[in-house]
Design a protein around this nucleic acid. Structure first.
Lengths: 203, 203
DNA sequence: CGATAATATTACTCGTCAGTAATATGTTTC
DNA sequence: GAAACATATTACTGACGAGTAATATTATCG
């Protein structure tokens, strides 16, 4: 690839025909993988959805597997970014905790909804999802441990377990297909249970 | 199939050669489907694991898909049984709530661990898992609504959401491969968060 | 033993699917 | 306008995998 092409790719404007095709293939692959999962999608489905022929696919992708891995990796990078910038401040006044946690859930849900198909690939469906969730548990657990050390979260549940449970909540909530307002409500409900539990607090 | 054969299948003892083969195929199918998922498992893998040849598979199973569906259905039936007999009594003293919820989680985790491979098929991996979880959410939500009506659970989170979150917790916890003691601990941690949340209860 | 049913095997078919060689069609640059 | 490059296509291959027909082996019982 020559310098001019790299420039064209870097500048968002004036996409070359090739970049257009690449983008359409990527979108098509994302949608088809999301709908059918890795094993059940055929390259022929992807190229049909993209409106190109099969060899064209292999101009832009080394293999079906490489195309899939690239999508998983892209989602993973985005999720890591979101997770690390989405951590609860270790020094939150207890009173604000639930609100802050709700905001955090809300950002996660928005992120997932923003490209639902990619989320399906990277977070919901195997084989990509398992490693993604394992990584996320680690990222989150580190933060939870800090909260516990700071006295914000109770310390009688191991951070790793809380992190797993949080990911479990997010997994189930993320699968609900709601609009922006619905996501706000979901996030508040998550935060309510996550912070205060289901009990009536009468004891 | 003659009456004698049905009798032999009903009585657990004196399994005929055919019933032995059926059982070995079922075990093999369970393990291979669990390891590789539906689409990535080949009938040839199953029969190799079972130590029989391919046509033998088709003596006992109508198709690869039918074999898979039968396993999913079997898990689903068991799960339904466990779920319906595992509900929290609507009139629990608040003080005992967490203990009772922990017992409930414990029974679920034991059930999942008891045949881990079947659980993988019916609960963890698509395509079987999605319908299973949807059903379980319904079963659980009905009970949660009762708890809310009885004043045991807080009512400011919709029962359906609580049910989904509970399934999310169970999903993540069930994936951890722990021994019986570990499951007891996990169950207590789940119950602790589910009933009381992560907050320090200082407010 | 010899007949009958049950159980399993060898040796295939037919379709599908990932991936490719050879070739054609635009598109920039001089 | 021709050389050089980028982009896409037609027409394949080779392997694999679900499912089967015909046949062999093993147990059961009169």
């Amino acid at each position: 690839m020559t310098d001019e092409r790299l420039d064209a790719a870097a500048r968002e404007d004036s996409a070359t025909k090739g970049e257009m095709t690449r983008a359409r293939l990527r979108r098509a692959a994302t949608n088809v993988f999301a709908r059918n999962g890795y094993h059940a999608t055929k390259v022929s489905d992807i190229v049909a959805a993209a409106g190109v022929t099969q060899p064209t696919f292999y101009i832009y992708c080394e293999s079906k597997e490489a195309a899939y891995e690239a999508l998983v990796a892209a989602f993973r990078d985005n999720l890591r970014q979101i997770t690390l910038t989405n951590l609860i401040d270790p020094a939150i006044p207890q009173a604000e905790l639930e609100t802050r946690v709700a905001q955090s859930f809300h950002r996660f849900l928005d992120f997932m909804a923003q490209d639902r198909a990619l989320t399906e690939i990277g977070f919901f469906q195997p084989p990509g999802c398992s490693q993604t969730k394992a990584l996320m548990v680690d990222w989150v657990a580190a933060n939870i441990a800090q909260e516990q050390a700071g006295g914000v979260f109770r310390a009688d549940i191991p951070a790793a377990h809380i992190a797993r449970m949080l990911v479990g909540l997010l997994d189930q909530m993320g699968r609900m297909n709601t609009d922006a307002a619905g996501r706000g409500e979901l996030a508040r409900h998550c935060a309510r249970l996550f912070c205060g539990g289901v009990g009536m607090r009468t004891g």
